[in-house]
Computed example of a mutant assay.
Amino acid sequence: MIDYIVTETLTLITEKPASACTPRTTGLFTELDVDSLALQEIITTLQGRCHVIIPDEVTARVRTVGDLTQAVTDALAASPSSRIEMAEDYLRGHKSLHHERASRFQAASDRMRARGLSDEHVLIDLGAGYTELDYVLRSSYGFRGRYVPADVWLDGTFDLLTWAPPRPYHWYAALEVIEHLDDPRLLVERLKEWAVEGFVLTTPNKNVVDVFAQDPTHLSALDEETLQSWGMETSLHNFYGHYQDGICAVWTRRMKDGHDSRR
């Protein structure tokens, strides 16, 4: 999300194409023709959009797109309240109603229950948003286990790039998450290490929808074949208003060990 905000801000102020403003090695002064006044405008814009304060001494050291991105990242890390506010802004920007989103939570709940999610298990919901998965699991699937949300809006510290669970948990869910990562397989492999029982993912189907047009913070577009090659079982669903425009993928440790024949 930070990379996108930086790129969009640079594109707006420098009037250069996004392709020129995205690489972290791009020089602000040498390649994007940013002068001192434009740099101040860029910093001011980023501070407003990300709810942070970037110190003058940090601004003075900024030379590249990577420096700028790191300055915003460091400012957010120093201010959990800013990260919370940015997460809240993102959630407020999504205007769809619960019944329009419910199909993805139902698909994930169905797959987990079918694969052995029990009331004795603990489920960690990564990028939990409005915690609607918990509601659907309990109201429609009778789940009575422990549901634990993990999201930036909780305390401003959750970051999938650095977060790891303090101990093993039974199940993980990452619904509408991996398309926001530039290396989604990294999270998939981490979940395989962390999950005692398994995990479930949902993501847009790039073969049906323009994933990058859906949301400006999307960084990866995926299809069934890719997720299957990563060891997951997939199914297609109607998540966003088009036929088979969404994917639900599940992985269990039993599947890995070759002992799970449930469907």
Rank of each mutant, 00 (worst) to 15 (best):
H94Y: 12
L39W: 05
I13G: 06
I42C: 07
L117M: 07
L10N: 02
F158I: 00
T252A: 13
L161W: 05
R138S: 05
E100F: 05
D245C: 07
H237M: 04
P23I: 00
E179R: 01
L123Q: 00
G241Q: 06
R104N: 04
V65K: 02
A20P: 07
G116M: 02
S103N: 14
K256H: 08
T226F: 08
V208A: 08
W153M: 08
W163N: 09
R167C: 08
D33E: 04
G241D: 12
V211R: 10
V72A: 10
L126R: 03
D3I: 07
A60S: 11
V122K: 11
L137D: 10
Y141P: 10
I124Q: 05
C21F: 04
D74S: 13
Y243Q: 14
L137F: 07
T11D: 09
A173I: 05
T22V: 04
Y141T: 13
A78W: 08
L32I: 03
F158Y: 12
G241H: 09
M112D: 03
S140D: 15
S229K: 14
E57Y: 05
V52Q: 01
P166Y: 10
W251E: 07
S82Q: 04
P17S: 01
G66K: 03
D245M: 01
W230A: 14
G127W: 03
D35E: 05
I54Y: 08
A108G: 09
V72F: 06
Q47M: 15
P216K: 14
D183A: 07
K256F: 02
G198E: 11
A164Y: 03
R185Y: 10
I54H: 09
W230P: 04
V200F: 08
R146K: 14
E189W: 03
L97P: 00
V196P: 05
G231E: 10
E57C: 03
D35K: 07
E8G: 06
D151N: 03
A75G: 11
M112C: 07
F29S: 08
V177L: 08
T217H: 12
R111S: 06
Y169D: 00
A75S: 15
A128G: 06
D35G: 05
M1D: 12
P216F: 14
L160V: 15
R24F: 11
F212K: 14
S220V: 00
I43Q: 01
I124M: 13
D134Q: 15
L219W: 10
D151L: 06
R167L: 09
D74Y: 09
T59C: 14
D182N: 01
S235A: 15
E233G: 00
L181W: 07
L154V: 11
G27Y: 05
T11A: 08
D125Y: 02
S261Q: 00
E85S: 12
F143C: 12
A38Y: 01
